[in-house]
Amino acid sequence: MQALEGVKVLDLGRALAGPMCGLMLADLGADVIKIEPPGLGDDSREWPPMVNGESTYFMSVNRNKRSIVLDLTTAEGKEVMLRMAETADVLVENYRSDVMDRLGLGYEVLRKVNPRLIYCALTGFGRTGPRRNKPATDVYAQAFAGIMGLTGEVDGGPLRVGVSMADMTTGLFGAYGVLAALQARHLTGRGQLVDTSLMEGQVAFLSYHITAYHATGKVPQSQGAGHPSIVPYGAFRCSDGWVAMATFNDRLWQRAAVGLGLRELAENPRFLTISQRLANREEFLDIVNARFLTKTVDEWVAIMEDLDVPLAPVNKLDKLLADPQISDREMLQTFHHPAAGEVQTFGFPVKFSETPCEFRRPPPMLGQHTGEVLREYGFDASHTGVQA
């Protein structure tokens, strides 16, 4: 058994935020039907790199789903969609907030068809407010919501986080909201609208920065790999690469100082506490940075592990995926795809003792399951609204 076994999900997501939400539910056992428009389908099917015509980007977030093609602008496509919604538990979409309403398939319409339906809408800014119909992408959200304003070197320009964090966290928050709504429905018998956005997820991630700004009135600035409240904390260059170290209390710094051979620095009254080290950050880090340059990454890792100091190599992807912890935690999964062949992607990041996740299906080809799904709902396999 899986946690969401028996739950039916209609996934109208495209690109990343919506598909990520659907993926989380699919991995937990839900029957997720990915509904794609005719032509190219999900936008991300065209995003390189490609393997035998299949996008690795698309394949990374669409496993465990079935794909059907429907033209929701036609009467036939709407008819199929409405019938599917009658028995669905969840619908996920990440269009602008007015698109589904204009199609005649918005929340108010579908809740009348199925009062138990949980309708999860992922947008750029939410379904209310002056920006509700504005377009937004991952980099737009990172910029607008302040993440890029905090990311980058102290004296450099803003940087986008190296993964599509706004999209992916929105998908995660959406799945979190769906699970809460399923529990609420268990108590009340009623579905509801789950409404979250790229902006809101990024603002939530500002967390302690918001609280500190309210308390001090100081606008937080980019710290590079450093931390505004803790030092030493961040990335340090070694003789052959980089490490990251987090001495988030004075006891850890005392141990790190032993490993660095800087006992005298740890005993200096100007650097005894976190507050004192912050007050003298530049002078302090000049000494620490110079010491890290004297050894290799592996040497520092070995020294600090012996002292139980949290210090890690700054890994590139190839080295990370070769680490035995990754395989032990099943964080790499391999599928056989009918066109792309062997496909490798990330595993589910939560483990369950009683309802483990299963990787049942490879990412679907466009419309691969159209006939199969339509027959399940009593339609002829050609009843899609798509012109031949």
Rank of each mutant, 00 (worst) to 15 (best):
V99S: 12
Q221C: 00
E299A: 15
V288F: 02
M100W: 08
V80E: 05
S239F: 08
G156F: 01
V288T: 05
R270A: 15
G106V: 06
A143F: 07
G189K: 14
T123S: 15
V113G: 01
H214A: 15
I210R: 02
V297E: 11
Q2A: 10
Q344P: 03
G77Q: 02
T169S: 13
E330T: 07
L117V: 08
S207C: 11
V113L: 02
T73F: 05
A212F: 09
L321S: 03
V69P: 02
E267I: 04
I287A: 06
K218A: 12
A175Y: 04
P220V: 03
E305P: 01
K134R: 15
N64Q: 06
R14Q: 15
A75L: 15
N268S: 06
A312Q: 14
Q221V: 11
A322V: 00
E153A: 13
I118H: 02
R361A: 10
D43R: 00
S327V: 04
M50T: 00
W253G: 08
Q368A: 14
I303L: 05
M24L: 12
L10M: 12
T56S: 06
T216V: 08
E86M: 09
V231D: 00
K65D: 04
T169K: 04
E264M: 01
R190E: 13
T370P: 07
L320H: 05
V219K: 10
V154T: 10
N94L: 02
D318E: 15
G259I: 00
G149R: 03
T370G: 07
A322D: 11
Q368W: 08
K351D: 07
A290C: 13
R281D: 12
S164W: 06
G41S: 01
M148S: 07
R251N: 15
L272N: 02
W300Q: 00
A256I: 02
N114I: 04
M100V: 04
R127G: 07
G77C: 05
L366W: 08
L366K: 12
F359C: 09
V343K: 07
A3E: 11
G378H: 11
E342P: 03
M199Q: 12
K351T: 12
G124F: 09
M304G: 00
E330L: 03
V109Y: 05
R63G: 02
